[in-house]
Design a protein around this nucleic acid. Sequence first.
DNA 1: AGGGATCCCTGTACGC
DNA 2: TGCGTACAGGGATCCC
Length: 284
Amino acid sequence: MNLPELPEVETVCEVLRQAKFSAAVKGVWRSDFNLRIGKQWRREQEGWEQIRGRRPQMIARRGKYILWSFASTTGEEALELLLHLGMSGQIALRRRGQDKAKHTHLSIDFEDERRVDFVDPRRFGGLKVDSPEGHRRRGILKTLGPEPLSRAFGAKYLQDKMCKRSRAIRDTLLDQRIVAGIGNIYAVEALFAAKVRPQRPAQSLSAQECELLVKAIKAILRRAIAKRGTTFRDYRDPEGSRGDNQSQLKVYGRGEQPCRRCGAELKTLVLGGRSAVYCPVCQL
DNA sequence: AGGGATCCCTGTACGC
DNA sequence: TGCGTACAGGGATCCC
């Protein structure tokens, strides 16, 4: 279990940026395994050869997706590598010739002897190459909701989205069409901070609760980014370093333990097949 | 359009 | 020790 959410993906991007890749791509290797299946990813099998000879440029994040652009040296349109870490995906910085870890699915060799590997045991991750325009116009990215740290994600927006929904608030926070980048860890942590129970129907939240929840989400994500992500079990950044945010977790993974705010026993419940932990006293 | 179920996949934990 | 099994969980897709 790796559980990369927005702060972890942002940290991965930041480490890749700091690594300052600029040498051209010498070669690309792709495993024979399918990663994420679906219409949106169908063209994934193609395009890897087109990366060869190109120079790596900007690295961006959108929700839990990583976007890495590769410029042509002969004037063609830029190509963009779209990458999702899924449940168990990791990026690893290596040197050319270094052994590939088990479950490596993509390996990019650069002219400066460095190599970037994508490793994903469970294969819930996804890889695709397309033009930047293609990624934004055709599927995947265009269905994503606003970035939770952007101004577009405010109390009014959340309230507007929640007021017609009967689903549990925790599940709506996991819906990437509503807001992009939140997973189970930060959803339950934000709900604890906002004092809202995860099973509450989304439409039952008051305007004040929506405001508290938005503020909690932003604060929790910002802190987690500053701490370079949460290493609950396996998460590592591309250099193999752990995150430091796990000490900040108040409820995730703490079911049946005492609430850090009031001492009551935290409860675990299962919503839509995914566990949610909350404090029956602090959260209404 | 919203919501629920289903499927994808392997490492880990646990019972016997 | 080794084997079988339940479980975890993001997101695409399908169906109502």
